[in-house]
């Protein structure tokens, strides 16, 4: 499958990764090579095969509906880049 510069930009945007015009060439060629490796998969017929998401068939465990956590805001926000009045601050969100 072809992976061109416009795909690079689209994917970079989705992943919120900035790719400069200097980098785009290399990113494109590297990823194209990797996709070439990945495309070896297409040689096998897997129509009747069930996809496998987890190594072993298991069942989700359930947690009882109890409050086990206490307010620890001050401690947790010590490592935040920017905080005011208990809120995490980010550049203005425009809806």
């Amino acid at each position: 499958m072809a992976f061109d510069k416009s795909e690079v930009s689209k994917v970079a945007q989705l992943a919120r990764i900035k790719i400069t015009s200097d980098e785009i060439e290399e990113v494109e060629s590297r990823i194209t090579e990797i996709l070439h490796l990945i495309d070896q998969m297409q040689s096998v017929d897997t129509d009747s095969i069930e996809p496998m998401s987890h190594p072993f068939g298991g069942t989700q465990i359930l947690r009882s509906d109890t409050i086990t956590e206490e307010n620890n805001r001050d401690e947790l926000q010590k490592i935040a880049p920017k905080v005011e009045n208990g809120l995490f601050l980010v550049p203005k969100v425009i809806e």
């Binding site: 509906d65 409050i67 086990t68 208990g86």
Partner: peptide, 22 residues
């Protein structure tokens, strides 16, 4: 529910900001 969907943090309406976030 008393606690959140995937954590044991309280899930009440109107608490001070980020006091119910573990």
């Amino acid at each position: 529910t008393a606690s959140k969907l995937f954590s044991g943090t309280a899930s009440n309406f109107g608490a001070d900001p980020n006091t119910q976030a573990n």
